[in-house]
Amino acid sequence: EETGVRVELAEEDDGEKIAIKLWLRIEDIKKLKGKYKDNEAIEFSFDLERDVPEDVAQEMVESGYVCEGDHKTMAKAIKDRVSLIKRK
């Protein structure tokens, strides 16, 4: 499903790190509610043992990086990427 958002690794995952750096990349602004630039990327750290995707997305909303209306879309994108990383 195309959401307009993609999360990718910002650094090589060696399988050892607990906290990883990720990029939340805006790919299609028409599919989102907030005002973003095409190909805008937000770099953030995610602790694989402690962080919760919904909470991280909420922090982005509170910091003004993400529109409240896009919270669920961002949280799902983060959750999907993190579950792929954890499965390795």
Rank of each mutant, 00 (worst) to 15 (best):
E12C: 04
E27L: 15
K79P: 00
G4K: 09
K35Q: 11
E8L: 05
R50V: 02
A77I: 11
R87W: 06
A75C: 08
M60A: 02
D55L: 13
M60V: 00
L9M: 13
Y65V: 15
M60N: 00
S45F: 13
K72G: 14
T73H: 06
V52P: 03
D55R: 12
E43T: 08
L24Q: 09
E54R: 02
Q58V: 00
E54C: 05
A57M: 03
G64R: 02
I26D: 14
A75K: 00
L32N: 07
I26E: 13
E43L: 13
K21P: 04
M60E: 01
Q58K: 12
P53Y: 01
R87L: 06
K31F: 06
I29D: 15
G15R: 06
K30A: 12
G34D: 05
K37Y: 06
E40G: 09
D13M: 12
H71M: 14
Y36V: 06
R50F: 02
D38Q: 13
A77H: 09
D14S: 09
E62L: 09
E40D: 11
K33G: 07
V7P: 04
K17Y: 01
G64P: 00
G64W: 01
E43D: 05
A19F: 09
K17H: 09
G15S: 09
G34F: 02
E40M: 14
I18A: 15
Y65L: 15
L9D: 04
E12P: 14
V56Q: 00
C67H: 15
L9A: 05
D38F: 07
K86P: 05
L24G: 06
F46H: 03
W23T: 15
H71C: 14
A19V: 15
D70V: 02
D51K: 05
C67G: 09
Y36Q: 03
I42S: 01
D47R: 00
L48C: 06
D38H: 13
V61I: 11
K33H: 13
D70L: 07
V61E: 01
I78C: 01
E12N: 11
E12R: 09
I42P: 03
D51E: 02
E62W: 05
R50H: 13
I78V: 04
V82T: 05
L84N: 10
Y36A: 06
E27P: 08
V56A: 03
S45L: 14
I18S: 15
K79H: 14
W23Q: 15
K35T: 13
I42E: 02
A10G: 10
A75D: 01
A75H: 00
V56T: 02
D47N: 13
G69K: 15
N39Y: 04
G15A: 08
I29V: 15
N39I: 05
I26M: 10
R6L: 07
V52H: 14
I20Q: 05
I85H: 05
K86Q: 12
G64A: 02
D28K: 13
H71D: 04
K31Y: 09
E8C: 04
K72I: 10
V5Y: 11
E68L: 04
V5S: 01
G64F: 02
D38E: 15
L84S: 12
D14Y: 08
E49S: 12
T73R: 10
D14K: 08
E49Q: 09
D28P: 00
Y65N: 07
V5M: 15
K76I: 03
K21L: 00
A10V: 10
L9S: 06
K35H: 12
R50C: 06
E43A: 11
R6W: 05
M60T: 00
K30I: 06
A10E: 07
D13I: 08
H71R: 13
R50A: 08
T73C: 08
L48A: 02
W23G: 09
E27H: 14
I20L: 13
E68R: 09
M60C: 01
K72R: 12
G4Y: 04
I26K: 13
I18F: 09
I18W: 08
I42W: 14
E59L: 11
D28Y: 06
A19E: 14
H71L: 14
M74T: 09
K72N: 09
V61K: 02
A41D: 09
K76E: 08
V52C: 13
G15H: 08
F44V: 05
L22G: 13
K37N: 12
A57N: 00
K76H: 04
K37P: 09
V82C: 02
G69F: 09
E49I: 08
K72Y: 11
F44Y: 08
E54T: 03
K79L: 07
R6Q: 07
V61F: 02
S63K: 15
Q58F: 08
E27D: 14
E27G: 10
G69T: 13
L84F: 10
A57L: 04
A75V: 11
S63W: 06
A57T: 05
D55P: 01
H71N: 05
D13F: 10
K21Y: 00
D80A: 08
D13Y: 15
K76Y: 00
D28N: 11
V82G: 00
P53M: 05
Y36T: 05
E43G: 10
V82H: 01
D47F: 04
A75G: 00
E43C: 09
I18V: 14
N39P: 07
E68W: 06
E49Y: 09
L84M: 12
G15N: 11
G69L: 14
F44M: 04
I85R: 00
E43M: 10
V61C: 04
K31G: 12
W23E: 15
R50I: 04
V52W: 05
E8Q: 03
L84C: 12
G69Q: 15
E12Q: 12
D70C: 03
V66G: 02
A77K: 06
E54A: 06
I29W: 11
R6S: 08
E8I: 09
Q58Y: 10
E62G: 04
E62H: 11
D70I: 03
K86Y: 06
V5Q: 12
D80P: 03
D55C: 10
L9I: 10
L84G: 10
F44D: 04
D28S: 08
K35F: 08
V7C: 13
E12H: 13
A41N: 10
L48V: 10
Y65A: 13
E12V: 11
R50Q: 12
Y36W: 02
L22W: 07
S83F: 04
P53H: 01
L32G: 07
I29S: 15
E54L: 02
E40H: 14
K21R: 13
N39D: 10
L84T: 14
G4M: 04
N39S: 09
A10Q: 07
L9Y: 03
K17D: 09
K33L: 01
E62V: 08
R87N: 11
E16I: 05
K76C: 06
E54D: 11
L9G: 04
G4F: 05
E16P: 03
G64M: 07
I78H: 00
A75R: 01
V56Y: 05
K72L: 12
E43Q: 11
A10L: 09
V52G: 03
K21C: 00
E59Y: 08
A19Y: 12
D51T: 02
E43K: 11
I18C: 14
V7Q: 01
K76A: 09
R50M: 06
L32E: 07
K31D: 10
S45H: 12
L24E: 10
E16N: 11
K79R: 14
A57C: 07
